[in-house]
């Protein structure tokens, strides 16, 4: 949280649209990216980002003056994302788009970067684990902020992070690297 936050939050709580706009500018991209990693779909992440800020705007007047805005906003985003993930309908199939030649990108096909492995592994984790890891490492929240954003105590957040890292390590260590069909089959 920047030094401007308390003042901005206070003014936004009193209905200052300019102050809220400043807060929105400050947290728009982080929240969007966080939600993007949570739901894995940019369009959906944008929708959820919009929902998050509108919810925050509506709820601000009823918050306490000592509100920690940043973790509070992330908590709204997390709850919004998880609620959406519970009821969303998505297509999980990689489309076969005409004119889009998947196999032409040989570099992608043959060498899977660590980044992709991490993204993929993260996508396989339960959402509450992924949320904890993303808040802590991707968004750079402190342990206290992460706990606040998750709505749990610091000890509970520490335990959740431990379990999330363990789950990540298990999936990460055993994940099937994405490769060409021949490689995929050869694993059998």
């Amino acid at each position: 949280m920047t030094s401007d936050d308390p003042d901005l939050v206070g003014r936004a709580r009193e209905g200052d649209q300019v102050a809220f706009a400043r807060l929105f500018e400050q947290y728009h991209a982080p929240i969007l990216n966080y939600l993007h990693r949570m739901v894995g779909d940019r369009a959906m992440a944008e929708d959820l980002t919009q929902d998050t800020f509108i919810k925050a705007y509506n709820a601000l007047p009823s918050t306490r003056p000592d509100l920690a805005f940043k973790p509070w906003l992330y908590r709204i985003a997390t709850n919004t994302a998880i609620s959406q993930l519970r009821r969303r309908k998505i297509v999980q199939w990689i489309p076969f788009l005409p004119g889009h030649d998947h196999a032409s990108d040989q570099s992608v096909e043959r060498s899977v970067s660590r980044k992709q492995d991490i993204e993929q592994t993260l996508s396989r984790l339960p959402q509450h684990y992924a949320a904890a890891l993303l808040l802590r490492h991707y968004q750079g929240l402190s342990l206290a902020e992460t706990a606040d954003a998750l709505g749990v105590t610091e000890n509970a957040a520490k335990l959740r992070l431990f379990r999330a890292r363990k789950a990540f390590a298990e999936v990460y260590g055993t994940a099937e690297p994405l490769g060409v069909p021949g490689e995929w089959e050869a694993k059998g």
Binding site: L32, H36, Y138
Partner: peptide, 23 residues
């Protein structure tokens, strides 16, 4: 790997559409 990898994941630019919609 997890900690480092998450830190360097690509990030999206703010969406003007979201900005307009929210405001």
């Amino acid at each position: 790997d997890l900690a480092r990898g998450l830190q360097v994941l690509p990030r999206l630019a703010p969406s003007p559409a979201v900005s307009r919609a929210v405001m």
